[in-house]
Amino acid sequence: MADDPAREPDHESAETEGPAPIADEVAAVVVERFPGSVFAESHGQPVVYVDRSVVVDHLLDGTRRRVDGVEPERFEVVMNFLSHARNRRLRIVCQVPESDPTIASLVPVYPGANFPERESYDLFGITFEGHPDMTRILMPDDWHGFPLRKDDAAARVPVTFKGDPSPR
C-alpha cells in the first residue's frame, strides 16, 4: 500500500538473536526493531506478529491457526504493507484483547489509514488512539452495535411463502 522509509534503514540485513535467522530481510529488520515480535510465514508471504504498539487495518475474530509464541486474543488487527521500491509485501498482525479494544493509530505516519481505521471502529468497535476523526463511516451515526463482530447477528429475515403472515 505505501512505501515505508521510516521503517527500513539503509540496507541493513539484520539477524535476530533467536532461534533461526529470518529469511526475509525486511521482516528481520522489523523484528529487531520491535522486540518480542514473532516471525511466521503464511503461504509464501512473510508475516510478523507484533506487540500492541504497532497498528492495523482490519480485524477478525474467532478460531484461527496458532503461531508459536503468539498469545491469541479475540481480535487480530492486520496491516498489509507494500513496498514499491522493493516490490514485496509484508503483513503485520497484532492481537487486541476484547477487554481493552484500543490500539495506536497509523494516521500520523500514513494519512491513508484514516478511512480503514474508521471502518474498523465502525464494524468491530476497536478504537484507534491518535486518529483525528474516530466516527462511524459505513453505518448510520446512531447505529448500536458493531455489525461484523461474531456475536452481532446478521439479522436475516426468515424466508416466507405466499399466504404466510408477513415477517415485517
Binding site: M139, P147, A155, R156, R168
Partner: peptide
C-alpha cells in the same frame, strides 16, 4: 425484496 443480501444492512424490500 432485499435480494441476495438478507442481513442487517439492507432494507428488505423498498416497499417498506
Amino acid at each position: 425484496s432485499g435480494g441476495m443480501f438478507n442481513n442487517y444492512a439492507i432494507v428488505q424490500g423498498v416497499d417498506q
